[in-house]
Amino acid sequence: MVMVREMTMSESRRNRRKAKKNKRQSKNDISQKDKIICILAIVTIFIIAAVAAYYYSLSKAGVNLF
């Protein structure tokens, strides 16, 4: 007589949860180089905006800049 092992309820539930967890994981397709370029671009834009605001406030105060 050959005994066939059937999955118990807990094994079935565990496998369903594993499959659900693996389905939720998203893969990050952004490379490290792209992240660094993005951060540098954001910092550059912030610095340009700060300098522009500084010069704008000086020009409104009546200071000749150039």
Rank of each mutant, 00 (worst) to 15 (best):
33 K>G: 00
43 V>A: 12
54 Y>S: 07
41 A>N: 09
55 Y>P: 02
30 I>P: 00
24 R>G: 10
42 I>M: 06
39 I>Q: 10
29 D>Y: 15
34 D>C: 04
30 I>Y: 01
36 I>Y: 07
31 S>D: 04
28 N>K: 03
46 F>D: 08
51 V>A: 15
52 A>C: 09
31 S>L: 03
27 K>R: 12
39 I>D: 07
25 Q>A: 13
45 I>Y: 05
28 N>T: 03
39 I>C: 02
32 Q>T: 06
35 K>L: 12
40 L>C: 12
56 Y>E: 12
26 S>E: 14
32 Q>W: 02
34 D>F: 02
37 I>H: 01
42 I>W: 04
42 I>L: 11
44 T>N: 05
49 A>F: 07
47 I>V: 15
34 D>K: 11
36 I>G: 03
32 Q>I: 05
34 D>G: 08
56 Y>R: 13
44 T>L: 06
47 I>M: 11
36 I>W: 05
26 S>K: 14
41 A>S: 12
56 Y>W: 12
54 Y>W: 14
29 D>V: 14
33 K>T: 08
37 I>C: 02
56 Y>K: 14
45 I>R: 06
56 Y>L: 13
51 V>K: 05
48 I>R: 04
35 K>Q: 12
44 T>I: 09
56 Y>M: 13
52 A>Y: 07
26 S>F: 09
51 V>M: 15
33 K>R: 15
55 Y>H: 13
41 A>F: 01
30 I>D: 01
33 K>Y: 02
39 I>R: 11
37 I>D: 00
36 I>F: 04
38 C>Y: 02
42 I>D: 03
27 K>H: 12
32 Q>N: 11
44 T>G: 09
35 K>A: 04
34 D>H: 07
24 R>F: 08
25 Q>L: 13
40 L>V: 06
35 K>G: 02
52 A>D: 07
37 I>E: 02
36 I>R: 12
44 T>P: 00
55 Y>F: 14
50 A>D: 10
27 K>L: 04
56 Y>A: 15
25 Q>K: 15
42 I>K: 08
37 I>F: 00
33 K>S: 10
36 I>L: 13
40 L>Y: 08
42 I>S: 04
28 N>C: 05
37 I>W: 00
39 I>G: 01
27 K>I: 04
39 I>W: 04
29 D>Q: 15
47 I>P: 03
55 Y>N: 13
32 Q>P: 10
56 Y>Q: 15
26 S>I: 11
26 S>W: 05
26 S>P: 00
39 I>H: 09
44 T>A: 10
35 K>C: 07
35 K>H: 07
27 K>W: 02
39 I>P: 01
29 D>P: 14
38 C>I: 02
40 L>H: 10
52 A>W: 03
28 N>S: 07
29 D>N: 15
43 V>L: 14
33 K>P: 00
43 V>C: 14
38 C>N: 07
54 Y>T: 05
42 I>P: 01
56 Y>F: 15
39 I>N: 09
54 Y>K: 06
35 K>N: 05
45 I>Q: 09
25 Q>F: 08
54 Y>C: 06
38 C>E: 12
48 I>L: 15
44 T>H: 02
